[in-house]
Every structure is written in C-alpha cells, then in structure tokens.
Simulated scan of single mutants.
Amino acid sequence: MIKEADPNKNNAKLKAIYNWMRRAKLPAQIIEIPKTAGVVKSNMNANIRNLTDLDVAWLGYHFFKKYMGLYVDTIFNFNEWNESRDFFLKLSAENAFRVVEVELNFMYDVLFTKLPVVYGKSGAICRIFSLVAVCIAIILFAFISKTKFWDTDVMITYALLFGALVMDTTALLMLLFSDWTIISFQKMLDRALHNSLKIKIIRVFLRCRTERKFQTETSTPQVTKSLRWSETIPSYNLIYCCLHPRPRLQGKIFDTLGLTNYLDSIVYVKSNSFSPDLKEFVFQELKSKALYAKDLPRAKEISSGRVDWVLKAEGWDNHLLGYVSDVDFDQSIILWHMATEICYNSEL
C-alpha cells in the first residue's frame, strides 16, 4: 500500500527538520523545484458528462491506486488532493457515485478478500491446479471399480466431486470477469483504439454485469440500478429500540445462543433505498464543502466540524451550538439522532 517515496508527501516532516536545524543554527534552506508536467491518462480527459462503464472502471482503479496509502496514514501532497477535488467537482452526482462504487469495491477486495494474492503467479497456478485436480479425481473415480462400495457412498462421492467442480469453475469465472481482469485487459490494449472490437466487448460485458433494470411501483419507466452494491442504507431507530425492549428472559436466551446482534439487525434495523434524490443531496453538500475547502486550514475546519457547520449555515448556532461543542462526540451523535427522529416524525 505504500508507494514510492515522494518528497512532496513529507512536507510536515521536512518542515520539522528544517525548524530543528534553524534552532540548532545549522545551515538550512528549502528550495522548491517546479513540478514537471506528467502524462495524463486518457480516461482523465474523458467526457465527464457521459462516462462509459469502462471509463468508470478505469477512473475508480486510478483513484484507488492513488489513495490506498490512506490506509496506512500516508501523507499526500496538494497536487494529488487538488486533482481529486477538481475532478469530482466537474462530475454529476450519478457519475461521482459510480466512480466511488468501483473504488470502494477495489478497497474491499484488497482488505477483506484474497484477490490480490490470486492475481499473482502463485495464485493463478494454485487455482488452475485445484481445478485440474478435481477433474482428474472425477475421471479416476468414474473408471475405478466401485463394487465394494455402497451405492449411497458412491452417490455422495459424486455429489461432492461435482460440487467441488462447480465451485472451482464458478470461482474461476468470477475471477476472469472481475474488475481486476477488466483493468488488466485494458492496460494491454491500445488506448488509442477506443472503438476497437475488444473495447466494445468489454463495455457490453461491464454494462451487463454492473447494471440491471427494474420496474418500480411509482414510476412507469424502468429504473437502472447498480449491481455493485444494494443501494440501500440501514437505519437504526434508537427511540423505537428503547420503547420496545425484548423481554428479559428472552434476551438472556438469545445472549446465551449468540443471536442478539443478529436478531437486533432484523427487528430494529430498517433498510432504506438510496434514491437518486438522496444521492444528489449528499453530493451537493459535499461539493459545497469542497468549494469552501480551498486550503489546508479550511479543510481541517470542515473535517473537524460536527453539526455546527449546518447550524451556522442555517443561522441556528446561537441557540443550539452549545449542544454540539460542549458535549462529547458520542453523546452528540446520540443527542442529534434522537432530535432528528423526533423532528422527522413530527413533520409527517
């Protein structure tokens, strides 16, 4: 996750060393070397108003590779920060969420799956060896004499062998048709041949794999929904949980069986659809903060802010700001969760 050393990413450490040398009365001078213009990827210059699925996949991978160092607290320079900021400010809410979806999928694969290992040489060899071994086992078992075995044992053995074959084949197909494979193929293709047959096949495959159309009850036209995630947001109602507690004896039984968290997720958690209007609202809020954060002090002000940002924007800071700044962060979350729930239900 740690990329090659970049002097611009160590500005804080460089400044500390510079101040220490100045206090020690040692000769020290900081010389700023102008950054040379690098090669810009063709997808970064794509039509941002009409991003294709291939553009979205490449852009998601581009920002994933650039910012995966954040997992290990790597410091980034302002050039990288400005690149991401300027790019997303030009996007629509729909395209911005599409790019972030791909980026988060890559993050999940790296942090919680074995895909980075599987895509190596050893992983590919193990995957092929596993599939070949299962096929050989099926062939050998089919030709050996089974007169000494019970028919039930033979059927179970065949079921297990063919089950292993189906699982290995499915895993191999999922691996071949994953975003990682798409990115690998795209690197090998000539980027100038954007209308080539291979590019068109990849685009059709991406469209079929990442989108589905469904009919809603309230709208006549079909709505396109992403297959990369459920497009739902789970919500937890603390007030309802406190007013409708589980009986004590029942709670003890569920605690003993380890089912409390699972049942709570069913009873007290509700999945709400992440509608396009909500996407637009969230994106516009983030966009307004990004437009305000033109320098580091303003960015720190926004990142360290709580509800006070909304209160100041709405002109309510004189009455309610104390309930945010004078309490702990966890208490502030619970307080404003309850206030939001009460205000929301009072307006229904």
Rank of each mutant, 00 (worst) to 15 (best):
I182K: 14
D109G: 13
T256D: 01
I333P: 13
L175F: 09
A24D: 12
K200C: 09
L243N: 14
I334R: 12
S145E: 10
V72E: 11
W150C: 09
D277G: 05
D151K: 14
I183M: 09
N261G: 01
T216S: 15
S196L: 06
R49M: 11
I182A: 15
N50C: 04
A137H: 05
L335T: 03
D6H: 11
F283D: 09
K279S: 12
T210G: 10
T216E: 08
E83A: 00
R85S: 04
F143S: 12
L320W: 02
K13Q: 06
A24E: 13
M107Y: 04
V72K: 01
N19G: 11
V324Y: 10
L14N: 05
S303W: 06
R207V: 03
F177M: 13
E341K: 04
K225G: 08
L172D: 09
S184W: 11
N345T: 06
G120R: 13
L243S: 15
R23C: 15
T147R: 06
F106Y: 01
L197Q: 13
Q250T: 10
S196R: 04
W81A: 03
D255T: 06
V154L: 07
G60T: 04
I144D: 02
F112I: 03
V117Q: 03
M155W: 06
H194C: 07
S303F: 09
V204H: 08
